[in-house]
Design a protein around this nucleic acid. Structure first.
Length: 414
RNA sequence: GCCUGGGUGGGGUAGCUGGUUAUCCUAUGGGACUGUGGAUCCUACGACUCGGGUUCGAAUCCCGACCCGGGCCCCA
């Protein structure tokens, strides 16, 4: 039996890698323009980093192992926790805000599906040090801008966990989490049953259902009339005003909970068509994790873009490669190598490594889509020249190596 | 973890109401054409996902595993 790659992993061939690299570079450029700097964290971490953040329940979905020093290690399932760990470990006294971006692979032991792999790639950003709506708005705007830069326009949904939490403030945090979980799943029946179970008052129950049903432009005033004014609502209102300044189209959805306890304020998700069941390409929000990892409390906001899902739907086309094949004969192979070296200053140049005959070398040039062929023969060399053949027109002419280099360089720019 | 459809050379396929040597296309290597490409021809390479069962006989029927697709659960 031949060895195959593990389930949920992929190989990427040159054509696809070229496209992935191009998309990556576009996203990277956007992040840089907004003042974010690239960071890299280890592929594996101590497993506590992730269980502290997300609970023991995630162990089922983590790739973990004991190393030879008997340490419990996990391949990172996401990058937010490592970034905050990095911050706590050495950056707590650095000037705020800190603005980071990352692009890396992550690992989760899940059943593979369309848009879901066991090794997958995330492109994300985090801004550390600000709890203000300005930071939230910038993060959302940057997410939208990144997707736009690769030709993706998704549906942006924005919510704020503080609002529902304010309503639930008299309930234990454990029950709050469960409630938010039902809310996130839009499981009204389950929510109803749970509220019965904990004997929540009817008034609060009615308000909660109306609150999480709020959508659109009037959501903020309606929320205010439901639960009175509070900081979360004011913050959210300011955030929405700022999103207008950024000229973003969005839907207010106070039912977004992102299923996670450590999100504290703004949350947002971006959905796209054409992805099947896994239609979320980006998700994020503001959260507080530093304390959990032993640091001083500090607010941060960030998101992760599902890079593989972006690759599914983006419309980036790699530029045509300009390829030149240097064709030689048995008595000119060495000269061909030297000439190819010179041409590589301007173009992608290929020399024969198969011991092929002249005609087959040209045939090879044709199959790889070379735009030109440079013929290095004794006759040409004796005249101090080479033949430059245009594969699309079939025309060829005698030129010096320098002339050919210049010709190909200018052709390359077109 | 659950439901559902599917796995035949590298890619695409025929065969699949069991019965010789598993079909065709394409790709790839070599050659014909001896310094000019896409064509043509010759040749080579190369598959029934794996394991078990039924049978005189299994690519074909049954079971299981693995893998892929679609949908749940989950989605940090």
């Amino acid at each position: 039996m031949e060895v195959q790659r593990p389930r949920g992993t992929r190989d990427f061939l040159p054509d696809e890698m070229e496209k992935r690299r191009q998309v990556e570079n576009i996203l990277r450029e956007v992040a840089e323009k907004w003042g974010y700097g690239e960071i890299k964290t280890p592929t594996f971490e101590h497993i506590e980093l992730f269980t502290l953040k997300s609970g023991e329940g995630i162990l089922d979905e983590i790739y973990n192992f004991k190393d030879k020093g008997d340490r419990e290690i996990a391949l990172r399932p996401e990058l937010t926790a490592p970034v905050i760990r990095m911050y706590v470990e050495g950056l707590q006294r650095s000037p705020k805000p800190l603005k980071f971006y990352y692009f890396d692979n992550c690992f989760r032991y899940e059943r593979p599906q369309k848009g879901r792999f066991r090794e997958f790639f995330q492109f994300g950003i985090e801004i550390i040090g600000s709890a203000r709506p300005e930071a939230d708005a910038e993060v959302i705007a940057l997410a939208v801008e990144m997707l736009k830069s690769v030709g993706i326009a998704g549906d942006l949904h924005v919510g704020h966990l503080g609002i529902a939490r304010a309503l639930l403030k008299d309930i234990s945090s454990e029950h709050q989490s469960k409630i938010m979980r039902f809310v996130d799943k839009k499981d009204d029946k389950g929510l109803e049953e749970f509220l019965d179970e904990i004997g929540s008052p009817d008034e609060m129950r009615g308000k909660l259902f109306r609150l999480i049903g709020l959508h659109g432009i009037n959501a903020v005033p309606e929320a205010r009339s439901l639960i009175g004014d509070n900081e979360a609502i004011s913050q959210f209102e300011t955030l929405l005003e700022l999103l207008e300044v950024y000229e973003l189209e969005y839907q207010v959805d106070l039912g977004i909970a992102r299923g996670l306890d450590y999100y504290t304020g703004m949350v947002f998700e971006i959905y796209c068509e054409g992805l099947g069941a896994q239609n979320q390409v980006c998700g994020g929000g503001s959260y507080r994790l530093a304390q959990l990892f032993g640091g001083e409390d500090i607010p941060s906001t960030g998101y992760a873009i599902g890079f593989d899902r972006v690759m599914e739907i983006c419309n980036v086309k790699p530029a045509m490669k300009k390829r030149v094949v240097v064709v030689s004969f048995d008595d000119t192979r060495r000269e061909a190598i030297v000439i190819a070296k010179r041409l590589r200053e301007h173009v992608h140049a290929y020399v024969d490594v198969m011991g092929r005959k002249f005609k087959d070398q040209i045939s090879y040039a044709n199959t790889i889509g070379a735009s030109h062929v440079v013929i290095v023969g004794r006759n040409e060399l004796d005249a101090g020249k080479i033949a430059l053949k245009d594969m699309s027109t079939g025309e060829q002419e005698l030129v010096t190596v320098e002339e050919a280099a210049g010709r190909l360089a200018s052709f390359n720019q077109v």
